[in-house]
Design a protein around this nucleic acid. Structure first.
Lengths: 338, 338
DNA sequence: GTGAAAGCGCTAACAT
DNA sequence: ATGTTAGCGCTTTCAC
C-alpha cells in the first residue's frame, strides 16, 4: 500500500547521520570498509528514523525475481492447502515465490483482492476456481492492458480462457475406481455428483455402467453441494431413494467424508453395507474411520506442471499466444472404505 | 531468480518498434494520446520480444507496498491453512500481500527457502514453528544485518526472540475444558501431550486435577508425536495403561482425531466410554464421527493481531526494540466427543 | 500524437 | 574508511 507520508529513505538517514548514502548502505548491510563507530551511529539513526529499506528499489538493483500468484477459492477446503503446499515448495526450488490469494465468497472483496494481487505478480495460477473467476480478474490489468500477465488454470477444461491449462483425466480414473468396485462384487453403484456443474466424471460413470451392463436408473445419481454437509445429506437421500445401492462414487473427498458421516448416522456400515470411493486423494481421508478410498490427484505433479508452464511462458520458450494444454491422470488409493 | 540473459526492457521494445520509450508505455498500458496504428505495432513488437514489465521498477515508481512472509511448518497440517487463510484475507484488506513459506522438514531446504523469502518481504510472521526455526533464519539477513526485518511469532512464548509475540492463554482454556468434563461426571481424566515439548497445557491440567482432588497418577499422562498416528498409538497405550480413564484431554486436534480412531479400532465408544477433548478447534473436527469437542483458537483474531503488530512496527508507531506481547484466549467448542 | 527529461531508492564500481 | 558517480527499468511531468 502506498503510504501517504513519504517513507524514510537512505538519504534521510545519511543526512541525519552526517555521512554519505554509501556509508549508510555499508553500515546497514554489514559490508566491510566502515569503522565500528560509524556503523553504530548510522544504525542508531536508522532505528530512530524507523528506516525500512524499500524492497522495490533493492529488487531493481539486484535483478529480476519471479512471483506467482496462487488464486484459490478457500484455503480452508482441504484440497487447496495440499496444492498450495506443493506449489510453494516447487516454486521455492526455482527461486520463485508464491503470493496467496484466498478469494473467498464475497464477490466484491474477491475483485479487490485479485486487483491488488495482479499488480504484484508475474503470473497467475488459478485452481479450483469456478470459471467465473477469470471474469473477476480486473479488466484493465488483463484485457485493456495489451500484454496480460500469463494465466495458468489447474484442473481446467481445454476451452478455458488461459495461456495454459492442466486438465485432469477423470475418465480413466473413474474406470479404475469402478473396476475396483466390481472386482469386489459391487453391482449397484450410485454416484454423488456436484450440484454446481455436470462433471465429466458423471459421464464416465454412466458410460461404464452401460458398457458393463450394470444397473442404472435416474435414482442412481444424486447431486449435492460440494461440501461436507452436501455429502451428509446426499447419503441420507441415497439411503432413502436407492437403498439397494452397494457402492457409491463421490465427486470429491470432502463430500465423500460427509457421506461417510451420513451413513454412520444411519447405522449403515461402510464398506460392509456400502462401499464409498471419493475423489482427490486428500490426506484428511486417512483421518476418518473407515479411511477413505479415493481417486487421488497428484498435487505435486499438478504444481510441477504449473511451474513449468509458467516458466515456458515467462522465458519465451513457448511462443506467446500458444495455448499450452496438459493432462494428468488419477491413481486409485485403496484404503478402507472400498 | 535473477535471469542470466538480461531480460527485454521497455527500451528494447522502443528501439525495435522505432519509437520512444514513452510511446511504449502508452501503448502497453492502454493510455490515451497514441494512435491505434502505433499502439498495435508496439504491442506486436513487445509480444515478439517476449517483453515482461519489471515489477520492481514499476513498484519503485508507483510507491511502496507491503509484503509479509508467512512461515509455517507444513501447510498440510490442517491448523495452518486456517491461519493462512485468515492472514491472507486480513492482509489483503490492508492492501498487503502474503508470501507463503512452507519450510518442510528438510533443514537444508528450509534454510534456502527462508533465505530467499527474507529478501522479498517486509516482515515475517512465524507460526507453529519450533523455536529452532528462528535459528534457521539466515544470519546475514537478521543478525549481521543491523536492521532486521520485523518478526512476529504466533502462539509463542513471551521469551521468544521476536519483535512481537502473540501468546495463547491455554490455562483458562484448559480449565474450561476440564470444568466441562467434570460437569458431565467425568473424574478419571487423562491427558495426551506432545512428546516434543512439555506444554503449559499439561501444567494447567495437573493443577486443575490437584485443586479439584481428581485422581492423577503418572499413568494419567501420555506423550506422543504431534501427528495423527501419534494420537492413534497414544489412545492404544491409554487403553492399556489407564483403562479406567473416562475422559482425555489432547494436545491438538490432529492427535485427538487420531485418538478417536484409536478408540474406534479398540471398540471403545466415544463419548460413551471415554470423552475426548482436542485443542485448536479445527474445521476437520467436524468431519469425523463423533465430531470433536475442542478448545478452539480464534485464528482470525490471531491473524488480526499479527497484522496489527506488524503494522505497529513498520509504521514506527511502536518504538523499535519494544517487544510487543499480546495474549488471546481459547473457547471451548462443544461438539459430540465430550 | 510523440519525445525528452527527471527521478523513484537503492547498490556496485570507482574514486579519494 | 569514506564519498562520488552511474545506473537498474519504469512512469510522470512537461515540451514539442
Amino acid at each position: 500500500m502506498a503510504t501517504s507520508v513519504p517513507a524514510t529513505t537512505i538519504l534521510d538517514v545519511a543526512r541525519v547521520a552526517g555521512v554519505s548514502r554509501q556509508t549508510v548502505t555499508r553500515a546497514l548491510n554489514g559490508l566491510p570498509d566502515i569503522s565500528a563507530a560509524t556503523r553504530e551511529r548510522v544504525v542508531q539513526v536508522a532505528r530512530q528514523l524507523n528506516y525500512r529499506p524499500n524492497r522495490a528499489a533493492q529488487g531493481l538493483v539486484r535483478g529480476r525475481d519471479v512471483t506467482i500468484g496462487l488464486v484459490l477459492e478457500d484455503l480452508r477446503n482441504p484440497y487447496y492447502p495440499e496444492l498450495a503446499s506443493a506449489l510453494s515448495r516447487i516454486a521455492s526450488d526455482h527461486g520463485w515465490s508464491v503470493i496467496l490469494c484466498d478469494i473467498g465468497d464475497d464477490e466484491q472483496k474477491s475483485r479487490a483482492r485479485l486487483e491488488s494481487m495482479v499488480q504484484r505478480v508475474d503470473a497467475l495460477v488459478l485452481t479450483g476456481c469456478r470459471t467465473e473467476t477469470v471474469g473477476l480478474l480486473p479488466h484493465d490489468a488483463l484485457r485493456r492492458r495489451a500484454l496480460g500477465i500469463p494465466i495458468v488454470i489447474l484442473d481446467g477444461s481445454p476451452d478455458d480462457q488461459a495461456d495454459a491449462v492442466v486438465e485432469i483425466d477423470y475418465q480413466a480414473g473413474v474406470r479404475a475406481a469402478l473396476d475396483h468396485l466390481t472386482a469386489s462384487g459391487r453391482r449397484r453403484i450410485a454416484m454423488i455428483d456436484s450440484s454446481h456443474i455436470a462433471s465429466p466424471r458423471r459421464e464416465s460413470y454412466r458410460d461404464y455402467l452401460r458398457e458393463h451392463k450394470l444397473p442404472w436408473t435416474s435414482r442412481s445419481e444424486f447431486r449435492a453441494d460440494e461440501t461436507h454437509e452436501g455429502g451428509v445429506s446426499a447419503a441420507q437421500e441415497l439411503l432413502g431413494d436407492y437403498p439397494e445401492a452397494d457402492a457409491v462414487l463421490v465427486y470429491n473427498d470432502v463430500m465423500a467424508i460427509g457421506a461417510l458421516k451420513g451413513f454412520a448416522r444411519a447405522g449403515t456400515a461402510v464398506p460392509g453395507d456400502i462401499a464409498v470411493v471419493g475423489t482427490d486423494g486428500l490426506d484428511v481421508g486417512t483421518l476418518v474411520t473407515p479411511e477413505l478410498t479415493s481417486l487421488s490427484i497428484d498435487k505435486t505433479a499438478l504444481a510441477q506442471h504449473a511451474i513449468e508452464l509458467v516458466d515456458n511462458i515467462l522465458s519465451g520458450r513457448t511462443p506467446a499466444g500458444s495455448r499450452q494444454r496438459r493432462r494428468i491422470g488419477l491413481t486409485l488409493v485403496v484404503r478402507e472404505s472400498a
